[in-house]
Amino acid sequence: MLTTVLLRRLIFSIPTLLGVATLAFMLGHMSPGDPAIAAMGLDLEGYSSVEPEELERVREELGLNKPILVQYVGWLTRALQGDFGTSYVSTIEVSELVFEALPTTMLLLVMTMSVSIVVGISLGIVSAVFKGRTGDYIARMIAIIGVSTPTFWFALVLMLCFAVAIPIFPVNGSFDEFGWKAMALPTMAIALHPAALIARMMRSSMLEVLSHDMIRTATAKGLSRWRVYMVHGLRNAINPVITVIGFQFANLMGGAVAVEFIFSLPGLGSLLIEGIYEKDILVIQGAVLVIGVAFALSNLLVDLLYMIIDPRIRI
């Protein structure tokens, strides 16, 4: 039964993915500047010195003078086959650039996700179980600070504290150079916000569940507090938290773009920002498309998780 549902969801996600692709394409084309100039390795000042015929020739070469719809269909057909074109600037295949950058970003996101889930859920549970006591106040304080701190700012503060003032971690550098140490500060920087959101959701959801009759039933069975909270409470309280976690993916990606750039991690975020600086449309489009697809898939995963956890949703 689960496979049928999975198939149906996969089919339903096709329009979403198509939308994502369209948006990625449009974003590339709507960004200001002429990609042909970028491809010629010129900046805006060099623009005036270019012969119009020369510019026209480059445009023709890159297919930029075709109607936008034709360009779109061509790009989409090739993208479906994993061919995002060749970077105008570095003349490397975009797919190669993307797949080189992907592992760093994936690693960063998996680490951030794990840290924020573990920290968020634990803080939320502590907060709910010790409601109105010291543990609750401390956990809530951390959560409030967490949701109100901008990611890029926190990244800079972490860098100042733990890379500059107390040099435990590198200021910047890739996983290949420094190993896990390179990932620690970026992970912390991105994880703070989602961890705080998860903690707040976990607290309110858990508090609601703990006031339910079934918790009294579980207590009246003579179960230990731990079992009442973890087996009966947590499992019933986790669904709204999973929704929040699922939506955090978008935030994480946003945070990752800035933080990767700040810490010079060679991930998708850095690739995207460099692409934007250099008006490298195909790189922008490729990176946005991969990020968008990952987001759509993560939503699908959340839906499936719901069904696995809550027997009432298996329709």
Binding site: D213, M214, R216, A220, G222, N236
Partner: peptide, 18 residues
Amino acid sequence: GNKISMIFQEPMTSLNPM
């Protein structure tokens, strides 16, 4: 739940749905 047990008023909400 062992020597002394209880049944509650609301059977609809007293059991764990999960």
